[in-house]
Design a protein around this nucleic acid. Structure first.
Lengths: 101, 101
DNA sequence: CCGAATGTTCGAAGAATGTGGAACCCCGGA
DNA sequence: TCCGGGGTTCCACATTCTTCGAACATTCGG
């Protein structure tokens, strides 16, 4: 979990969008993630986020659920996540939404 | 000056290093920037930073001087620069230093 | 057991990135 | 006027990224 890695992961609008959806701390199944990309592409983006240490993925049966690792991020990079999310909200970055569970 | 652009610019260790050197607000001639890259590569990195809106370049005769656009960054992305610089310092990202003028 | 749903992985194409060398431009000094 | 230092631009190369479709693995439901 290094800073350049995290920034690279977040430099893609789709991935910032995913993080924005997860910002409220709730866990989401990624069938609920509505992103304008193919299934394999979404899988790829989630992998980048996971390997950068930004998200955690939990498997349950055939489904996967993803959460933001907010506590770890805040410990390692104090205040960065908050500032980043605020900036992303201000610019409305990403076209990812989530279905209500 | 968009968030993904800024994050992409800062996802390279060399460029974070440059920003760290400029963090004190002082203007630097980029003959003073000691980065372990070729001249054309440094020029490239400075261009990325400039076009992302992170730095400003001033030309004086044959030399160029660069400053961090801290005020503009803070206005657009409140607190982001501070959090980013703190994280970069904590990890000691980048191998760029500056000669004393 | 078979089929549908859900992710992952693989292969590929196209674009972007980081890097350095060589040539070029511009200005200042001798 | 010529030379040299300082930057930029152009080209080339290797690497990485983004994207998708197709094939595969796994698990649940009927």
């Amino acid at each position: 979990m290094s800073l350049p890695r995290v920034l690279a992961a977040l430099s893609d609008p789709t991935r910032i969008g995913i993080v924005r959806v997860l910002a409220d701390g709730r866990e989401r199944g990624w069938g609920q993630l509505r992103a304008p990309v193919a299934k394999s592409t979404l899988s790829h983006h989630l992998k980048i986020l996971r390997e950068a240490g930004i998200t955690r993925t939990r498997q349950e049966g055939t489904r996967c659920y993803v959460t933001l690792r907010r506590a770890e991020l805040d410990e390692r990079f104090p205040d960065l996540t908050r500032a980043l999310l605020a900036a992303a909200d201000a610019e409305d970055v990403g076209e990812v939404t989530a279905d209500e569970s």
